[in-house]
Amino acid sequence: MSVEARERPSDAVNAPRSKPRKRGRETNGTLSQQRRKLLIPFVGPALTFYVVLFIIPTGAAVWISLHNWAGSGPMTWTGLSNYTALFQDELFKKSLWNTLLLLVVVGVVMFVLSFAMTLVLRDMAGRKIARSIIFFPHLINALVYGVLAGFLFNPGGLVNTLLKPFGVTEPPQWLAQDNLFPLIMLTLTFMTTGYYTTILMAGVDRIPPYYYEDCAMAGANAWQRLRYVILPLTWDVFGVCAVLWTISSVKIFEIVWIFGGSSGSGIPPTQTWTAAVYTYATAFSGESLPAYGAATASAIISLALVTVLVVLIRRVMRRDVIEF
C-alpha cells in the first residue's frame, strides 16, 4: 500500500477502487476528500484533550515508575527495582490482595444476587418501579455509604441498638481494624447489586417472548428455561458486566478512605487498603517522603491486572454470538 502510494501520489487515496467506474470514482474522491478535511475540526479537539490529559500521563506513569523520585529534585533511573521492591512489600501485597478480594468475592456474590434478582424481576408486578429504585444507589458517591456505615456500626450505633432486644449485650467490635474490610465488602455488595441487576435486566428483556412460549409448549421446567434459553441469550451481557466490574473494582478508593469515619490521621488502617489507596497514600500521605516511583509502579501493576483480566474474560466468555 505505501509503496503504491509513493509511486502514484495523486491516486493514492482512491487507489483500491480506481478501476471500474471512472465517474463514480471522481465524485467518491471529492466526497471522501471533503470528509477527510473534516477529520481535524471534528475529531481534533477531543483527541487533543484526550491525548494531552490521558494518554501522555499514562505514558509518563510508565516512565516515572522506572525511577526513584520524591516529586521534586532529581529523578534517578532504577529500572524495574520499584516493581521488585513492591512485591516484597507486605503492605502492597496486602493492598493488592484486598483489591483481588473485592474483585472476585464481591464480584461473584454480586453476580449471583443480581442474576437471581433479574429472574425474580423479569415478570414481577411493579418491576419498573422496583428497577428504577434499585438503580439509584449507583449514582450516589460511595463516600455516602462509607459515612453511613460509620453511623450504623459504631459502638452506640444503629446496629447495636437494633441487636439489643435480641439479647446481644456484647456485640462484636464492628469497627475494629480487622473487621473493617469485610464490612466494606458487604457495603459494596449492597451498593452495586442494583446497578448490575439493571444491566442484566436490559439483556433479559431483549429475549423475545416467543422463546418462552416455545418453552411452555415443549413442557420445559424453570431450570431448563434458565439453562437453555435465558443463560445462552444473555451470555454476552454477562461478559460485559464482568469486564465492567473488573475495571471499576480496581479503582475503588473513596469508600475505603472514609469507611467508618476513618482514623484521626486521615489515612485508613492498613488492613483495609486497596491498590488505589496504596497509590494515593504512598505519594500524597505527607507522612513520609513521597515515593512517586513506587506509587506509580503500583498503579501500573493495577493497570496490568485490569488488562490481563479483561483479555482473559473476553477469551473465556467468547461464544458464538446468537442472533435473535
Binding site: A61, K251, A295, S302
Partner: peptide, 17 residues
C-alpha cells in the same frame, strides 16, 4: 481503550504536569 485505565495510573503524572 481509555475506559480500561484505572484513574490512579494518571494521578501522579497529572499532578506533576
Amino acid at each position: 481503550l481509555g475506559l480500561g485505565v484505572p484513574v490512579q495510573v494518571i494521578l501522579i503524572p497529572l499532578f506533576v504536569m
